Simulated scan of single mutants.
Amino acid sequence: MSKNREPVESLILYYLFKWSIVSPMLHLYFRGRIYGAENVPTSGPLVVVSNHASDFDPPILSNCMRRPVAFMAKEELFKVPILKQAIALYGAYPVKRESADRSAIRSA
């Protein structure tokens, strides 16, 4: 996701959340380590595919990248009022899982 795709306010809040909450949680609570982040290009198209084993995976994955990350998220999550704003702010966009969602594919 390039910086010109996201409003400046969203990017500021994205990085604020990433560095004030997610990073300390990853390193202090989970004692996580990041290996190979220097191999991820900082600009240009990039598709990252990850197994999704817990609700913590998306924010932790974003913390391991040196660039903003946009996530496909099931559309049901966008029906939960507070969660909708939070995940949209964090760069998520809805995907309909029961059919080929061309809108989500275009967003990706």
Rank of each mutant, 00 (worst) to 15 (best):
E9A: 00
E9Q: 04
E9K: 05
S10F: 08
L11Y: 01
L11V: 03
L11S: 03
L13K: 10
Y14W: 13
Y15S: 02
Y15W: 06
Y15L: 09
L16G: 05
L16A: 09
L16R: 06
L16F: 02
L16Q: 04
F17T: 00
F17C: 07
F17K: 02
K18E: 12
K18R: 15
W19N: 12
S20E: 00
S20M: 07
I21R: 07
I21A: 08
I21D: 02
V22H: 04
V22Q: 12
V22D: 06
S23A: 09
S23F: 08
S23V: 07
S23Q: 00
P24F: 07
M25N: 05
M25H: 07
M25Q: 00
M25V: 06
H27S: 12
H27Q: 13
H27I: 12
L28N: 11
L28I: 14
L28M: 14
L28W: 14
L28H: 08
Y29W: 12
R31Q: 11
R31F: 04
G32K: 11
G32F: 13
R33D: 01
I34F: 11
I34N: 05
Y35D: 10
Y35I: 14
Y35R: 09
Y35L: 15
Y35C: 10
G36M: 15
G36E: 11
A37R: 04
A37N: 08
E38I: 12
E38F: 12
E38N: 14
N39G: 13
N39P: 12
N39T: 15
V40Q: 13
V40M: 15
V40T: 14
